[in-house]
C-alpha cells in the first residue's frame, strides 16, 4: 500500500470507529451518569415517603432548574414488593404529578384536571402486578382507580403546585403536605 492510501485507510477507519464510539457514549450517558436523578434525591427523600423539597432559592439544596413559584414534593418508589399509591388533594389550585425513571425521563404526567372527587390518585404497578390486580377485580363494578404501569421497578414521582405570589408559597407547601405515597394496600 502506498503511504497516501494507508493514511486514507487509517483516517476512514478511525472516523467510522469515532461514529460508533460517539453513538455508544451518547446512549450510555443516562445510565453511566453518577449520580443520576434518583441518586441525587436519595439523601433527601426516603423510599415511599412524600417529601417536600427545599424552596428554590439562591444556594438552596433543592433541584437545579427549579421554578421559584412552584412548590415540589418527591416520592421515590420501588415496586419490587407491591404496587405504590400516590394521592394528593389539589384543593382547586394547579397541581400536577410527573412520573420519572431513575435517570430523569418522564413516563407519565397529569394535572388536577384529571382529579376525581377532588382527589388526584394513581396506583403505580408493574405489568405482572397489573395482571394480578385485574384478575382480582370484582366483575360487577368498574375500576375507578387510575393504574399506571411503570417501565421499571424504581423511579420517583414529583407533585408540583404553584404559588402565584411569593406570599402564597406556604399555602402551596401545605397542599403538598397532604400528599401521600406508599403501599397501595388492597
Amino acid at each position: 500500500m502506498n503511504p497516501l492510501a494507508r493514511i486514507a485507510f487509517v483516517a476512514t477507519a478511525g472516523l467510522m470507529l469515532a461514529g460508533i464510539v460517539h453513538l455508544g457514549s451518547v446512549l450510555a450517558i443516562p445510565r453511566l451518569t453518577k449520580p443520576n436523578a434518583d441518586d441525587r434525591l436519595a439523601p433527601l427523600v426516603p423510599l415511599h415517603t412524600m417529601t417536600l423539597m427545599p424552596r428554590a432559592e439562591p444556594g438552596s439544596a433543592g433541584l437545579p432548574f427549579a421554578d421559584p413559584a412552584a412548590a415540589i414534593a418527591v416520592c421515590r418508589f420501588d415496586l419490587s414488593a407491591r404496587p405504590v399509591r400516590v394521592e394528593a388533594t389539589p384543593g382547586g389550585a394547579f397541581m400536577s404529578f410527573a412520573f420519572y425513571t431513575p435517570t430523569g425521563g418522564v413516563f407519565y404526567a397529569l394535572t388536577d384536571r384529571s382529579a376525581t372527587r377532588g382527589k388526584l390518585e394513581v396506583v403505580l404497578v408493574t405489568q405482572a402486578q397489573l395482571e394480578e390486580l385485574q384478575a382480582n377485580d370484582p366483575e360487577d363494578e368498574p375500576v375507578s382507580e387510575l393504574r399506571l404501569v411503570a417501565p421499571g421497578r424504581t423511579g420517583f414521582v414529583t407533585v408540583r403546585t404553584l404559588a402565584m405570589e411569593p406570599g402564597l408559597l406556604e399555602d402551596a407547601e401545605a397542599r403538598l403536605r397532604t400528599a401521600r405515597c406508599g403501599d397501595a394496600g388492597g
Partner: peptide, 26 residues
C-alpha cells in the same frame, strides 16, 4: 423531554443537567 420519546441526545443532556423536565401533561 417530557416523555419517553426524547431522543438519546436530549436524554443525555437531561441526565447530565440534574434538572427534572416538566412532563408533557404538566
Amino acid at each position: 423531554n417530557g416523555s419517553l420519546e426524547a431522543d438519546p441526545y436530549s436524554r443525555a443532556i437531561v441526565a447530565k443537567s440534574g434538572g427534572l423536565p416538566l412532563g408533557l401533561g404538566e
